[in-house]
Write a protein that binds this DNA or RNA. Sequence first.
DNA 1: CCTGCCGATGTAAACGATTGCCAGCAATTA
DNA 2: TAATTGCTGGCAATCGTTTACATCGGCAGG
Lengths: 339, 339
Amino acid sequence: MAIGIKEIARLAGVSTATVSRALSQPARVSPETRAQVMAVVEQHDYRANSFARSLRVRRADAVLALVPNLGNPFFSEIIAGIQEGLAPAGIDLLVTDSLSQQVRRQSPVGHLQAARADGLICLDGGLPAEVLDELAASDVAGRVVFACEWPEGRHFTTVRSDNRAGMALAVQHLAALGHRRFALLTGPAGNVLTQERRQGAVAALAAAGLSLPPEAIAGGSFEIRDGYRAAGALMRCAERPTAILCASDQLAIGCISGLSELGIRVPEDVSVVGFDDIALAAYSRPPLTTIRQDRRRLGRSAAERLLDSLAGRPAAEPLTTLPVEIVVRRSTAPAPGRG
Amino acid sequence: MAIGIKEIARLAGVSTATVSRALSQPARVSPETRAQVMAVVEQHDYRANSFARSLRVRRADAVLALVPNLGNPFFSEIIAGIQEGLAPAGIDLLVTDSLSQQVRRQSPVGHLQAARADGLICLDGGLPAEVLDELAASDVAGRVVFACEWPEGRHFTTVRSDNRAGMALAVQHLAALGHRRFALLTGPAGNVLTQERRQGAVAALAAAGLSLPPEAIAGGSFEIRDGYRAAGALMRCAERPTAILCASDQLAIGCISGLSELGIRVPEDVSVVGFDDIALAAYSRPPLTTIRQDRRRLGRSAAERLLDSLAGRPAAEPLTTLPVEIVVRRSTAPAPGRG
DNA sequence: CCTGCCGATGTAAACGATTGCCAGCAATTA
DNA sequence: TAATTGCTGGCAATCGTTTACATCGGCAGG
């Protein structure tokens, strides 16, 4: 089918070694020979078989990204960032999701063991312990980077946003608007982002002399639907909150939607802050005040970290924390009665 | 580093041939031998080097998905569907975007030529002609499937949604509500979906005895921002439309946002219909009436089509058109004055 | 003129699996 | 008893590269 190096060598009247060298280390062959080889190469647009090459050099030139759920649009921007970081190095990107891995009972480490990928970028902080143990094995750990989420109590290279600082920004913004009664819509239980953001919120509230009563905490996923559902629950609190902190923009949008069903106006009656700044945040009604995390940069940074590590220049600091910022739009306003 | 088949063979006291057979054709070795081999295999959790295997069997067990823009969340669901269709067959998914390919001046065909991927699923209908020519080459064409978008005037295997029927459903719904003055927010010029959807709209309007004046057509991308911008333009029409057909949900959401800035209420003053039924459509305000296309199924179907084709059972019909349906929510209402 | 060196090229051995072919052996059949 | 059949398992070629090492002129220095 496809033409091979032997045939190119024959047509150019040189040995296969020379063809190989003409392509990968041009300085090693004389200009005339190189031109001669290149002519034949281009004429047949020959491309070296990547498997033979990978087999020989023991390098896949590919990395695997493991995503909790490929269908979740939240991750697309991160994936794009990863791709962006990988492309200049000519590294290919394989993707798969944790779900299908589990279903097929195979571990992502398989790809590394089979030499199919040189490294792994993992966006799922909730991997089972036995998988984490595999990843922590000495010959694998150096080829793994966690991005966005990460498993607790482990020591993998990790790139993440400053989740606590983000929640602190949200709290400060709302407190400055005079809000005193807060509620929190959290993500899934056990998720590390849920915990970080909650702790960030609690700490910032404490710093402002405020607290978060247990009944003012709802949620349980990052999904729109749960934001919608939780709106009702929060409004049944004895002390109705005037400000709702959400662990994701999706939760915030669902929540606003649920509030409006109840005849509660945002931001007049209640202020809502999201987290992430997804594309739609600016165009939801009302436009959402939220914490922006640069997901593309997160991905790019993870890719670069991994590339460094694969090239044998491990970062001094295994933990990279990217800054976040607050984007004030129109879902937040002064607390009622302080107009 | 990783253990090889030779070592496994030695430890199990058999030849490499037997190890290979024990793993890939268990029936070919006796139960005792198999057990013996498997014990050693599991003890070292040996995984055959995928490159050596691919080199020998001349199969990558991987396909490449080419996406116009990885960062666009619209595609994530399709990608998830592709992965879903590929996983049962044990095929890996490589992804890249058209943009980074262009920047690096390399064609996606390169991956096929280099034997890195067995096939290509292309979500970008706007590839340059020379790339399409490469793809149409006889030894490549059978390994390519277009999904969602497709290039016109070519004969690639294609899986798509019934875009025309979708627009017809939208028109019929609005016409039944008494609307007579329509506007259309289109996607990017030259995009095949833009054309299909426009033609679907025009045809359905004609069937209802209605027409679409040129000044009632705006847009130019599928992005939110352009929906927002276009809202103003449409409202400056001499004959203000009472119904706006949008080529994407993002356009619709942007448009509604723009209309609300102008003090125009949806659906009281103007009805708006989207296209796609993205996750947020149900939770935007008002909840969006839209045409649902099953993006996951689209991806799955494309993967299956490609797998069939790679396995040498090409479909009788190169074109697969998936049904769409209308989801009526609250962004549409009877035309003003017909309460 | 000889020696040594250097740059350009070729030779051939890996890389790690799969698989066609064949041999050995036991069980079945004539 | 001899011949046939069927099942196991080993040998070795093969997939298409890369690269260590050998080779071969040519040229400069002695």
